[in-house]
Amino acid sequence: MSKLCVRSFAISIDGYGAGPNQDLQNPLGVRGPELMEWFFHTRAWRKMHGGDDGETGVDNGIAEQGFAGIGAWILGRNMFGPVRGPWPDDSWKGWWGDEPPYHTPVFVLTNHPRAPLTMAGGTEFRFVTEGIHAALEQATAAAGGRDVRLGGGVSTVRQFLRAGLIDELHLAIRPVLLGSGEHLFQGIDTHALGYECARHVAGERATHVFLQRRAAAEK
């Protein structure tokens, strides 16, 4: 059975998953890239960008596992791009160039309809206007028995988390303090929602914490 998983989602030790003032120049917010430093050094990251170097330690192994067994993705609109309101045209095709790293159907949450967008390498962006439950239903069908990965951003993960829809949540906790930005858990009682820490692993540049919903563990 397909699970909805958050994998390799970086947060600061004070709980922020993005910095403040996100825009075209700062897609992760001011100082947001510091959260991803654990990933930037891995071979998995370098391979995604055409390189053949990079580190092969714990962080890399966990990053590679994050892409295994994924049949579809769900993204919030902010993760797809900085465009707000109705789509002015079809010129914006994401942050990733002609061949995004997903290689599966990707369901983008939005309030404004847009035709599907087929990219090189097997990625197809499909735009969902009916909300998170519809996106999960469509992504699960497209995944064909494999898992669905929820890519973010923070507000999108919070919506699915509040609804108790996430089965597994892998957080890469970076040893930095952002102080402001988008907080992942503020106002959310994860224990009451049935989540618990299944394991934690120390990597080279992050501590990897794996949360699991107890109902998911009992399936």
Results as ranks from 00 to 15, higher is better:
Ser2Asp: 02
Cys5Arg: 15
Val6Gln: 09
Val6His: 01
Arg7Val: 05
Ser8Thr: 01
Ser8Leu: 07
Phe9Lys: 04
Ile11Lys: 01
Ser12Phe: 02
Ile13Tyr: 01
Gly17Leu: 10
Ala18Pro: 01
Gly19Trp: 10
Pro20Val: 03
Asn21Phe: 06
Gln22Val: 15
Asp23Ala: 06
Asn26His: 15
Pro27Asp: 03
Arg31His: 04
Gly32Val: 11
Glu34Ala: 10
Leu35Gln: 00
Met36Asp: 08
Met36Thr: 05
Met36Ile: 13
Glu37Gln: 12
Phe40Gly: 03
His41Lys: 07
Trp45Asp: 06
Arg46Ser: 07
Lys47Asn: 04
Thr56His: 03
Thr56Gly: 04
Gly57Glu: 00
Val58Ile: 13
Asn60Lys: 02
Gly61Asn: 10
Gly61Met: 05
Gly61Ser: 07
Ile62Pro: 00
Ala63Trp: 00
Glu64Ala: 15
Gly69Glu: 07
Gly69Val: 13
Gly71Leu: 10
Ala72Arg: 04
Ala72Pro: 01
Trp73Lys: 02
Met79Lys: 09
Val83Pro: 03
Val83Thr: 14
Gly85Trp: 02
Asp90Arg: 09
Trp92Lys: 05
Trp92Gly: 07
Lys93Leu: 12
Gly94Ala: 10
Gly94Met: 05
Gly97Tyr: 11
Glu99Gln: 15
Glu99Arg: 15
Pro100Glu: 11
Pro100Cys: 11
Pro101Gly: 10
Thr104Val: 12
Leu109Phe: 06
Leu109Val: 08
Asn111Phe: 06
His112Ala: 13
His112Phe: 15
Pro116Tyr: 11
Leu117Ile: 08
Leu117Asp: 13
Ala120Asn: 14
Ala120Ser: 13
Gly121Lys: 09
Gly121Leu: 12
Gly122Phe: 05
Gly122Tyr: 12
Thr123Asp: 07
Thr123Ile: 08
Thr123Leu: 01
Phe125Ser: 04
Phe125Met: 01
Arg126Ile: 12
Phe127Ser: 06
Gly131Thr: 07
Leu136His: 13
Leu136Arg: 07
Glu137Leu: 11
Glu137Asp: 14
Gln138Arg: 11
Ala139Glu: 04
Ala142Met: 06
Gly144Cys: 05
Gly145Gln: 10
Arg146Asp: 06
Asp147Ser: 11
Asp147Gln: 09
Val148Pro: 00
Arg149Ala: 14
Arg149Tyr: 04
Leu150Arg: 05
Leu150Pro: 05
Leu150Met: 12
Gly152Phe: 02
Thr156Tyr: 06
Val157Arg: 01
Val157Cys: 14
Leu161Arg: 03
Ala163Gly: 04
Leu165Val: 09
Leu165Asp: 02
Ile166Thr: 09
Asp167Lys: 01
Leu169Val: 03
Ile173Glu: 01
Ile173Gly: 00
Arg174Gly: 07
Pro175Gly: 03
Val176His: 05
Leu177Val: 14
Leu178Trp: 02
Glu182Leu: 14
Leu184Cys: 11
Phe185Val: 05
Ile188Met: 13
Thr190His: 13
Thr190Tyr: 12
Ala192Ser: 15
Leu193Met: 11
Tyr195Glu: 03
Glu196Tyr: 14
Cys197His: 09
Cys197Ala: 14
Cys197Lys: 15
Ala202Ile: 12
Thr207Arg: 12
His208Thr: 08
His208Cys: 02
His208Met: 09
His208Gly: 10
Val209Pro: 00
Leu211Thr: 01
Gln212Phe: 02
Arg213Glu: 05
Arg213Asn: 15
Arg214Val: 13
Ala217Val: 10
Lys219Phe: 08
